[in-house]
Amino acid sequence: MRRADRLFQILQYLRGGRLMTAAGLAERLEVTPRTIYRDVAHLIGSGVPIEGEAGVGYLMRDGYDLPPLMFTHDEIVALVAGARILQTWGGSNMAAAAQEALVKIDAVLPEDQRARVGHVNVHAMETPWHGGHWRDFLDIFEAASEKYIRLRITYEDESGKGSDRVVRPLGVWFWGKVWTAICWCELRHDFRMFRLDRVLDVTEVGDFRPKKGQTLRDFYETEAYCR
């Protein structure tokens, strides 16, 4: 890697006030910590507002204008592939946001990198499972888990039996073709996972406060998750 490219990558890693050690930067950039010390000293001497010291770590204060956004070939492939997958398999809001993100990325890339975006041969195809309201429900569950909103749902299990539940969404998981919502179920007084393609109706019914024993971290410690 050219030194100019390495200096730019150091700025990218320190973007947003992230604290990183010289050892961590050296591992990512496949150089020695001594090289990182010299590079950081050069950046500081050039006026870049980097703070820190050897053995502690470095960070860059907010407000510093970085050069135009640059990505490696693999990063472009990852971003485009991820956006295309969300456009097909994400919620309605997620799909729209993924498209907008691609437009913004394309607008700030140099011309040679912009051409790479169009040559990413990774695609996501729709399947018959894509029917129903699961896209909108995915957005609702995701937002509810972030804002701590209780939901009343009508749910149909694998046998076709329906039930009404009040749940506290904790997060959503994607299993390759099926999204599930991890919730604290007020009916069962326990954690439950609901397939979003089996949710028939959703209504917001008020806020909730995370309680000890009912959080996502608590779910990770249960036998159901460990199995």
Rank of each mutant, 00 (worst) to 15 (best):
E100A: 13
V117F: 04
Q99E: 14
T32S: 15
L196D: 11
V31C: 15
I153Y: 11
G176S: 13
M1S: 07
V77D: 04
F71C: 14
V48K: 07
A95K: 05
V122C: 14
E100H: 11
A81R: 13
M1N: 04
D74L: 11
V172L: 05
I10F: 12
G118S: 06
G131N: 13
L14E: 11
R165D: 10
H119N: 01
D5Y: 04
V80D: 03
I36D: 14
L14I: 02
D65C: 04
A54I: 06
F137Y: 15
I10Y: 14
D106P: 00
T154F: 06
G171K: 13
L66Y: 11
L151G: 06
T35Q: 14
L19G: 01
L66N: 11
V80W: 00
A101G: 14
L25E: 06
G176A: 11
C226E: 15
I105S: 02
A54R: 15
G160L: 06
G47V: 05
R34M: 08
G91R: 09
V80C: 00
H130E: 13
T72A: 08
A41W: 08
R34W: 10
R84I: 02
A107N: 15
K104W: 15
T222H: 07
N93S: 12
F219P: 00
L43E: 14
I140P: 00
D139S: 12
M125S: 13
R168M: 10
V103N: 07
V108P: 03
D136K: 03
T215C: 08
Y64E: 12
V120K: 08
K211R: 08
T127I: 12
I44T: 12
W89Q: 09
F194E: 04
V117W: 00
T154A: 15
W179C: 12
E186A: 07
A78S: 13
L14P: 02
L59G: 02
E186N: 07
E30I: 09
L200G: 08
D106N: 10
L109A: 08
W134D: 11
M1V: 00
V167I: 09
L196W: 09
E51N: 01
D157W: 05
C183H: 07
H73G: 03
R150N: 02
D106F: 08
D201I: 01
R3W: 10
I76G: 01
